[in-house]
Design a protein around this nucleic acid. Structure first.
Length: 155
DNA sequence: GCCAACGTTGGC
DNA sequence: GCCAACGTTGGC
């Protein structure tokens, strides 16, 4: 099993919405590296840190999980849609996603400042300046540490 | 294939 | 709202 982090702007799709929906297609990803992670490396059941970006404060607010095999993002075919891609066809889709399923909301969200100041989390991608990737891998020891912080079961 | 221009992300 | 960092586009 591998571990991941996905970013979402709470104004657009907060974790509370995923809690309501239960499962949602992780659509609108238009970055090849992020797509490749979803298409090639995610496995059903992988656990994923849910990160709120572009908010005050940004940080990890809970957990979700990979809930489907990869399949084409339907929005790429919707003419006029923000995520329409004229170069994508049903035969040759360009954008591939997985479903995300709700797991839990942390009692203690971990802000980006917390992530950055915690020596146990040194080297995490999300704390790197200029790191914009919205789907990224997380090392297991980082993941475990964050979950313990989020649940309030560490220290 | 280079690289300038442009658009986007996302912290602050 | 600003702007640094980075990805993408398109002219040449």
């Amino acid at each position: 099993m591998r571990y991941w982090l996905v970013k979402s702007e709470p104004d657009v799709y907060p974790l509370s919405q995923l809690k309501e929906d239960g499962v949602t297609p992780w659509d609108g990803i238009r970055n090849y590296q992020a797509r490749n992670f979803m298409r090639d490396e995610m496995k059903v059941g992988d656990l994923v840190l849910f990160y709120h970006s572009n908010t005050k404060p940004p940080g990890v607010v809970g957990l979700c999980k990979v809930a489907s095999e990869p399949y084409p993002d339907a929005l790429q075919f919707e003419e006029g849609h923000k995520y329409f891609d004229p170069k994508a066809t049903e035969e040759k889709p360009r954008w591939i996603l997985v479903d995300m399923g709700y797991v839990e909301t942390f009692e203690h969200p971990i802000s980006l400042a917390d992530l950055k100041s915690d020596p146990a989390l040194e080297g995490m991608l999300v704390t790197r300046k200029g790191q914009r990737l919205s789907v990224q891998p997380v090392e297991q020891h980082h993941f475990d540490h964050i979950v313990a912080l989020g649940r309030g079961t560490s220290r």
